[in-house]
Amino acid sequence: MTDATATYTGPHGPKPKRRLSPTNIMLYGTLFVVAVYYLLPLYVMIVTSLKGMPEIRLGNVFAPPVEVTFEPWVKAWAEACTGINCDGLSRGFWNSVQILVPSVILSIAVASVNGYALANWKFKGSEVFFTILIFGAFIPYQVMIYPIVILLREAGEGISAVTGTNFRLMGSIWGLVIVHTIFGMPILTLLFRNYFTSVPEELFKAARVDGAGFWGIYFRIMLPMSLPIFVVAIILQVTGIWNDFLFGVIYTKPDTYPMTVQLNNIVNSVQGVKEYNVNMAATLLTGLVPLVIYFVSGKLFVRGIAAGAVKG
């Protein structure tokens, strides 16, 4: 009746989409405003850090630098003074690295085994143990600061007495590593436990029939399957420990201050002229590590977070 090649009348095919619909305007408008809100301070910081002091004194905060100089960056890294030390942020950077690496490795190693044991090797009271551990995440840090000072001091003196050395935990990098490991435990254990719970139980049973033990199953079956959750844990710990200020200022000494504490001391120093360009450069330098981490691992992070979503 109708020719197969006849042209259609009325609606046919995909529904046309309007580019400038009210929904799209609202959506992209909001996204733009939010993006500007977050990017503007960063812009001001970068621009200011590239200006010389005379240019800053002109007061045009948003103006791009007329004369680009990297002097403030060099000064922030290698020359800025905190107290008696005048070797810039570099000292704090290396301190932070020395705190960060063992803290991240230690906390993730312990928490992943914790989570694995709690998920797959349930023992009498394991649920109670887990509840107590999670409860630890809700206790305010302030309550625990002083007891930990005493614990670290006594433990350090105990070790010194036993080994006959002058070992100190309080005020040393190792003390801070222990503190970070302990405080990372609740949230990391929760993360790993939930991830390992989502691994099919039959896989675990099959491995037991195949003769693998606690560590065999952990290293040969579970670990290779849980890269996403390890990435999440690493990101959480690296950014958390790098950005930490409170524990750093309490449990270390000026020689071993992490980068954040040193940054504060540079920016908040009351003597002399306020060098805004140096302060901005120092702040950017300190923030660089978490920034790089986020940029590199964005996709993996989202995937891992979804995989370890809080459930049961």
């Binding site: 099919p200 099959a206 195949d210 399957m225």
Partner: peptide
């Protein structure tokens, strides 16, 4: 006895193959 010591082999509903 442990499962591996019992002289049994087991096949599961969800196959339970080691994915990696």
């Amino acid at each position: 006895a442990e499962p591996s010591e019992r002289g049994i082999g087991m096949v599961f509903q969800s196959y339970a193959l080691y994915p990696q």
